[in-house]
Structure formats: C-alpha cells, structure tokens
Amino acid sequence: MLELRGITAGYDPRDPVVRDVSLTIGDGEAVGLLGPSGCGKSTLARVAALLHRPDAGSVVIDGEPARGWRHRAPREQRTAFGVVFQQPRQSADPRLRLRDLIAEPLRATGRRAEADTRVGELAPVVGLSAELLARRPHEVSDGQLQRACVARALVARPRWLICDEMTAMLDASTTAALVGVVEAYRRESGAGLLAVGHDAVLLERWCDRTVRWEPLTRPFTVSRGLRPRTPGPQTPDGLNTVPVIRVTQ
C-alpha cells in the first residue's frame, strides 16, 4: 500500500500548491489523479516518488514511512518507484543512447550484469528495434523517446509506477501502446500505479479508480466507474479562490 498522508508541498512555503492532501493506493491498484494543468498534481506525484520534499505530511510505502527525499531517501525506497514524465525530451539525458538510457537505473544500482538481458527483454515490449536502441534522443521522435522512458521506468522492476501526464505529447496510437505496456507489466508484477493526467476519458479507461482535483481548492472529488463527469463550477481562468470540495459516488 502507498499512502500519502496530509501532504502540503510546493515551491514557496507561504503558498504551497498542494495543501493537506491524502491519498491511498492499494497493492496492485491503479489510481488516476485528474486535474487541470498547473494545479499541483505533478508536485504531488513527485512527492509520492520521493523526488520532492513536502513541507508537511508523510509518505508511507508498504507500511514503512519514507525516511527522506531525493538522495536522502534510502536507495531501496527510491527504486521502489518507476517514474515516467510528460516530456520525453526533458526527461532523457541527451548524451545517452537509448540502450544506455534504459539500462541506467540498473547500472546506477550495481546491477550492471542484468542490463543487457533486461534491455533485450524490454525493447521488443515497448517496440524499439536494435537500430533505434543505438540512437541518441535527438535522432528519434517524441513517441519513440517516450517508449524508451517507459522502458527505463520498468527496467529495475519497481513495485510502484508514477506516470505524470505520460501521454500528453503523444498521438492516440502511441498512447494506447504505452498504456498497454504499463498494464502488461502490472499484470505480471502486481505493481500499483498512480497515473496523473487531465484526460478523464483516458484515465477512466486506464485506471481502477479516478480522483478529481478541483482548481485551486483542496481536493478531492472522488468518482468511481465510467463517465461520472460532472461539470465543475465555471470560473474565469485561475480566478477561482473559493475552495470547493465535492464528492460524487
């Protein structure tokens, strides 16, 4: 179980983008976190992956509280998460060939010996040919690069996956292909998933449960099942300052 308890986080302690948010993901569960861009859901995803230290609150991974963030997190806690970001260009080291990009988490944790086999297994799964594996990021398309980034997130067999707007830059076919890859891995490994995004149709199709984040408010509206799409309060852009908490079942 992955528990986020009373998380307050942001980049300015006086004005946190995430205020007192709690969220629990069960073993093997897929939770979609829906919200407009800039609402703080990406920050919450980074907190969950131990990449951003919250101002308050705690993260509990399989019953064990996170003991630190970023480099201060113990390696076995950090590597319990596989993370995929929105922009493949930004999340790939431009100097590494795709093969090395995918193998990097294994090499960084002293599992060099497994690297070749594991990359060999994953490449056909995400649809990368040997020829593409030998290229650098600027020599492939966004879709191909994101395929490599998904492979990198899976290479060390994480127990939890955090996908932050993984498909926002991708066309429909690549989106379906990569969601398929993630789901196949989860079926085989039993990993849990937090998928952050703004596409309700996608997340409701993908996840067991979706959680909705209202603009500039304390979350959440919780919804279950298909298409619970209740229109939010119509407000001019970014001008809504009144907290709204709504729950629909």
Binding site: A49, E104, A156
Partner: peptide, 22 residues
C-alpha cells in the same frame, strides 16, 4: 531541476553518479 535528473535519482543513482555521469 530537469526531469532527467529526477529520473536518475529515482533510478537509484548516487549524488556522485548524478554529478559525474549526468
């Protein structure tokens, strides 16, 4: 602050490795 450094940290890279390799 680039996501690729985040990805390296999440992959278990030490501070030293992030500095020297990325």
């Amino acid at each position: 602050s680039r996501p690729y450094i985040d990805a390296a940290v999440s992959g278990g890279a030490s501070r030293w490795r992030v500095t020297v390799r990325h």
